[in-house]
Write a protein that binds this DNA or RNA. Sequence first.
RNA 1: GCCGUCGUAGCUCAGGGGUAGAGCACGUCAUUGGUAAUGACGGGGUCGGCGGUUCAAUUCCGCCCGACGGCACCA
Length: 637
Amino acid sequence: MVLITLPDGSTRQFDGPVSGADLAADIGPGLAKAALAIRINGEMVDLATVIEEDSNVSIVTVKDEDALELLRHDCAHVLAQAVQDLFPGTQVTIGPSIENGFYYDFAREKPFTPEDLPKIEARMAEIVDEDLPFKRSVMDRNDAITFFEGKGEAYKAELIQDLPEGEEISLYSQGDWIDLCRGPHLPSTGKLGKAFKLMSIAGAYWRGDSRNAMLQRIYGTCWPDPKKLKAYLHMLEEAEKRDHRRLGREMSLFHIQEEAAGSVFWHPKGWTLYRAVQDYMRKRLDDAGYVEVNTPQLVDRSLWEKSGHWEKFREHMFITEVEEKLLAIKPMNCPCHVQIFRQGIKSYRDLPIRMAEFGSCHRNEPSGALHGIMRVRAFTQDDAHIFCTEDQITSETKIFIDLLMSVYKDLGFDEVVVKFSDRPEVRAGEDATWDKAEIALTEATAAAGLETILNPGEGAFYGPKLEFVLRDAIGRDWQCGTLQVDFVLPERLDAAYIGEDGEKHRPVMLHRAILGSFERFLGILIENHAGRFPLWLAPVQAVVTAITNDHDEYAQKVYDTMKAAGLRCEIDLRNEKINYKVREHSHAKVPAILVVGGRESENNTVAMRRLGSQQQEVVALNEAVAKLRTEAAGPLG
RNA sequence: GCCGUCGUAGCUCAGGGGUAGAGCACGUCAUUGGUAAUGACGGGGUCGGCGGUUCAAUUCCGCCCGACGGCACCA
């Protein structure tokens, strides 16, 4: 007797062991058809799995979130079969489901070409039409190794080799194609449907290690139905439209050119945006008790040796020679900030010192890592170092987190995830010190009411860190802020303060950034707003234009009034139709268009049209200016 | 750095062994039009760079640079 409890609490009794498929059929023919897998006591297994004991069982259908993962994993298998059918001699390796799809890594002498993808897709569709059942079988570990080696599948054999001795190896077959796989799978390839698409080809190192061979990866996307596939492809198109590189060009914010790969040429409009963010940050830091400094770009090797950068970071540093001395362009600001701290004698009464710099840094990033303005070689951090006592770590962290959250909110980001990285295996400092630092950070995040995700062993060698990840308007995650506790650098660079006891003590340094780098953050900001910035950030806040040239004089008066009120305004007196001008300035994403004609000039009004609206509002000039001015003041009022 | 793709006008792209083409943008002229494209005409290119093959290369081949999609990296 087997007693099965369903999710709604109802039970069904069977005379003996029963398969998932039989159970579904017993419940109803509709469900039998829709069933893709079952979950026994929470664990997802094949529909064909025989339930031997009394269990809680649920039937997984396409409506189930987890079904998507099955679907995508199956799609990867079908891809692998199609590839091996079409390209004999290609070895299979791994093919997991990932967000929005799946990939499969193949070992093959000759890389795939984009033209191969449609052919592979066509073969995949045939395999789906064949409706081949996925069949699970098990094999002894050694037999499995021999089996895959015999097939010339060296990578699979290596994977099995690494599984523990005595482990049962499961294999799945579809038709005469067979693969090592933990499962579970759908009942048959026909259940997969055809809402999939191969997206791209890429190189990927075997086991993610750059010392290993490079495999050929094929990425695909897969959905329960064609409608969802279409929606996903549409979302990709929309994301492309807000790509900061595209908007940067279209809106003339910045450009990058060959001769300065990895560095940004900021155009007037982009620089205006940059300054708006920088001015805002400067004000926030000032209010939060920071002092602002500025430190050298070129610093002698000896300082980098003392700080440890010469040893640990040299390959990322740009080094130059001047009069037989080696100088490095600073990749970080911290050693320089310690130099300022070291000037004069510091008392415990001076702490904490919150030293900020919009620090321009250069790092020699690998060419393949460069990406628009998001990953560059020359960038400016909103960097600061808080020199404090160990006792102040918790309170300073709490204050910092509150500041950071408030800044993100002002800039349009409400969702923030915090990662906590604790001690790595290779580290400097005593365990007792690490205990103290980790506890201090934990307490601070708790006091700030934050939940954190633990990133075990991912801390810096000198101390634990918090990483702040924000989610943008279309659900993408970006790591921006950070806070790192550092006991090592003050020691290496001999920073000290005089304590209450009259003795010298080491301060702790908190390395912290909110935006991370301006370049990267502005890239995120552009994409988050899709270029349609709130008025306080918009490079051009308003354009004044006239219906005909007869009203140019009044338009000029409106423009002058706007300028005098401190608004970033442009005037468009071109001899063009109003439709044309409205269209053009709307495309340029200007938040406010002020149109004036005979009626407006007579009444001292403007017809104001806000971006995104199809209508305009006629208001008194002084009223319009006052309104825009308030809005342009931004979150700081 | 590694694998792949790409590089033609300001932008988006077509073309192809015999010194290049479209749309938009730009300029000139006409037009003065009430809220998302007025019309006509015109200017504009060392076809990413350097070599090679060829009577002839933007086109074919090689190397280099850069961008893009990934991988690795993000200290």
